[in-house]
Amino acid sequence: MLRLHNASGTLMSVDKDTVNKIARLSRIAISDEEAEKMVGELNGILAWVEQLGEVDVTGVEPMTAVIPNHLRLRDDVVTDGDVREKVLANAPAREGSFFGVPKVIE
């Protein structure tokens, strides 16, 4: 059976470091315990999806449109905006006309 390999040719499987890295990329805080548990879950799912590697996809283009359809384009007209109260209505930390976030150091 063909198996999925990553770009460097190694068989894919995740360890705790990888889980932590994915969690960081996903911006989801994760405890040590959760990371531990996730290793097994992700590996289970990844091992299962690996069967896709068996499929001969020579000459097959990845699907781009589910149903044959073309991208419609809009006219360049201002039809929206000027709805500040709607935009800010659910803000967890509204500051005047702005959204407030913890200070960002650039």
């Binding site: 930390a93 702005f98 407030g100 200070k103």
Partner: peptide, 14 residues
């Protein structure tokens, strides 16, 4: 983002 409007917050203008 505006950083000089508030001591502990940055402000977001979209």
């Amino acid at each position: 983002l505006m950083h000089d409007q508030h001591p502990t917050m940055s402000y977001v203008d979209l």
